[in-house]
């Protein structure tokens, strides 16, 4: 013990030494050994305190740093997007380079069509697969499908584009909105599968049993009681999935291509907001840059509106009546 007192760490504690100086009215002064021991302990405590404070501040800084990018992006979106956001943006078609004005009416409609068509493909399959996973919890096939669905969910969206291109664009010989919808719909499937399964699992077994005890068949129990009860959650999941595919761009490069003209046909190339933003952002023209910012603002707003709708759907509990 006494030998340790001479170690250099003792110096670090000199600042706090007065704090343990003996009170004058004490009858005995502490021995050197006691004093050294106390100083060392205090040093450790202080070092631990400093490390604690430093690390906690770092965590705090991490939290600030993690929220900053979003605030920056939203700030620039508002500042640069709002100035170009005129009524014409929603009603007019894109103009050739050099001509002032013009809008993205076709791209906005195109994106809505793509979301609708993708949902028509992705919703039934995703919800159906999720129901399957919830109903046959322990089955080996269910575990395999759940795992594959998670893996599918993590695949790059560009891969889905290649898939749709290989089977729906290449053989036909031209790009089409349908191919894009298939790619986006395929992306929705694993997202919906997972949320549907989770929501259906939240429905108490007692409700299922009550329906079965009334003489409901399995399918009727599943569709009219279980799915209805899990309904708001499934709707939320569907909306979240829609919001996520609304801004997807990479798969569209291989499938819908984009279109400068008005088209609402699923068999033809179609314009889409994200594609238009991409084209305009890459271009060297100032006015197109401005339109790209406006397009981005509209796209984000669309996504946020869907997101808010999703939250609203979750809150609604007692829906319409039975019949």
């Amino acid at each position: 013990m006494a030998g340790l007192a001479g170690r250099p760490d003792g110096e670090r504690t000199t600042v706090s030494a007065p704090a343990i100086a003996p009170a004058p009215d004490r009858p005995h002064r502490p021995s050197d050994r006691q004093r050294a021991f106390a100083e060392r302990t205090l040093g450790t405590v202080q070092r631990r305190r400093i490390v604690n404070a430093v690390m906690l501040s770092l965590l705090f800084l991490a939290a600030i740093a993690a929220t900053l990018p979003l605030l920056f992006i939203l700030f620039h979106l508002m500042r640069l997007g709002i100035t170009s956001l005129t009524p014409a943006f929603f009603t007019k078609m894109p103009r050739p380079v050099g001509e002032a004005g013009g809008g993205m009416a076709n791209a906005i409609v195109g994106t809505l069509i793509l979301i609708g068509a993708a949902s028509a493909i992705g919703l039934p399959i995703g919800v159906g697969a999720g129901l399957y996973l919830a109903e046959r919890r322990g089955a080996r096939l269910a575990n395999a499908v759940r795992y594959l669905s998670d893996v599918l969910n993590g695949l790059p969206s560009i891969v889905m584009g290649i898939f749709a291109w290989q089977f729906l664009v290449r053989p036909v010989g031209h790009f089409s909105a349908l191919a894009g919808a298939v790619a986006l719909g395929a992306m929705m499937i694993p997202m919906l599968t997972r949320t549907t399964e989770e929501m259906v699992r939240l429905v108490p077994v007692a409700l299922r049993e009550a329906a079965l005890a009334l003489g409901y068949s399995k399918w009727r129990t599943s569709l009219t009681i279980v799915v209805r009860t899990a309904g708001p959650g499934i709707v939320t999941g569907a909306l979240v999935a829609m919001a996520r595919i609304a801004g997807e761009t990479a798969p569209l490069l291989f499938t819908v291509l984009g279109n400068q003209f008005w088209s609402v046909s699923l068999a033809e190339p179609i314009a889409a907001l994200p594609l238009q933003i991409f084209e305009y952002a890459k271009s060297p023209y100032e006015e197109w840059h401005a339109l790209a910012w406006a397009g981005a603002l509209v796209l984000i707003s669309l996504i946020l509106v869907i997101g808010v709708a999703a939250r609203f759907a979750t809150r609604q509990r007692f829906g319409a009546h039975g019949d």
Binding site: L207, A210, I225
Partner: peptide, 9 residues
């Protein structure tokens, strides 16, 4: 059943 099970929807 033991617990009441009205259909919530």
């Amino acid at each position: 059943f033991q617990r009441p099970t009205p259909f919530p929807t």
